[in-house]
Amino acid sequence: MTQRIMPAIWCDGTAFEAAEFYTRVFREAHVVDQAPGLAATVELHGTRITLINGDDTYSPNPSISGLLNFDPLLFGGQEQARAYLDELYAALSTGGVLMELGEYPFSSRYAWVRDRFGFTWQLMLTDPAGEPRPFVVPSFMFGSTNHGNAQEATQGWIDLFDDSARGTTHLYGPDCPLEEGTVMFTDFTLLGSWFAAIDAGTYHSFTFSPGVSVIVSCRDQEEIDRYWAGLSAVPEAERCGWCVDRWGVSWQVVPDTIGELMADEATRSLVLEMGKIDLRRLP
């Protein structure tokens, strides 16, 4: 199945260097698409991530990270999964460590790290019991002014997108670090792709930004119109297929032919002048 929704990391002129790095350190990884000078898309263990070759206007922060599920069933056993986790911890933690590698109540081995391109990764040795999940799952952290919105936001997305459903949800109970009823963890599918989310408290100094956006690949104008209407909540942020929803998440609602449109000088200039992309205005 073609992946129709994926995270996009804004890179400060380092997108192609990042693509080379990720395809080197992940065991199953390759570049699937490149737009010279503009972007590269990599596939890591079956999940695609786009790297935008931008400037220093934006930068990633931990509000959207890559959750890596080191399921022993995926890697031939507990020892092998643990060894790969430690291998990627060494490669991906050169930009800093947000949560030290160690044992936590939710995992016997876990760390949250920042790589040298600013993107953060959660590395977790997972319990093989239950329904399988992909190795790479983009994860939303609802902190700062967004704390407490994880359930409402994710349900709104599930209701909007086709082929979407809730997976597992764990809420905080009494005598927990955060308020009872807020989301400790939830995972869900949008257009068939897995995502996760948590509520993380009001003490964080950051929230969602264009540093990490979400690309929605649309089959036709009807899908563009429907998803744009359901997502765009900040009119002044609308540009070239980009919009921002009511929780501050940046989305790129684009046709599945966007690569071809941007490669052609005539159509690219028209697309760059649009807010919502209107295929009817293109030659």
Score class of each variant (00 low, 15 high):
Ala83Gly: 06
Leu125Trp: 04
Ile5Arg: 06
Tyr110Gly: 12
Leu160Asp: 02
Val234Gln: 11
Pro105His: 01
Gln80Arg: 15
Glu223Gln: 13
Thr2Arg: 13
Tyr227Lys: 14
Gly148Ile: 05
Thr94Ile: 11
Pro134His: 07
Phe185Pro: 10
Ala266Phe: 02
Tyr203Pro: 05
Ser269Cys: 06
Phe208Asp: 01
Leu171Pro: 09
Ala35Arg: 05
Ser209Asn: 12
Phe106Gln: 02
Gly148Met: 07
Gly156Ser: 10
Arg114Ala: 13
Glu20Leu: 00
Phe21Met: 07
Phe117Glu: 13
Arg27Gly: 15
Leu98Glu: 02
Ala229Gly: 07
Arg133Ser: 12
Val183Tyr: 07
Phe75Asn: 04
Pro138Phe: 14
Gly13Asp: 10
Phe140Cys: 06
Asp256Met: 06
Pro255Thr: 00
Leu85Trp: 07
Val253Asn: 05
Ile215Glu: 14
Gln122Glu: 08
Ala129Val: 08
Asp264Phe: 06
Phe161Thr: 08
Ala233Gly: 09
Ala40Trp: 08
Gln155Phe: 01
Asp245Val: 04
Gln34Lys: 13
Gly259Phe: 10
Pro36Asp: 00
Leu279Arg: 05
Val25Phe: 06
Arg109Ser: 12
Val212Ala: 02
Leu67Gln: 08
Glu43Arg: 13
Ser107Met: 08
Asp245Ser: 06
Ala165Gln: 12
Val253Pro: 11
Ser232Glu: 14
His30Val: 09
Glu43Trp: 01
Leu101Asp: 01
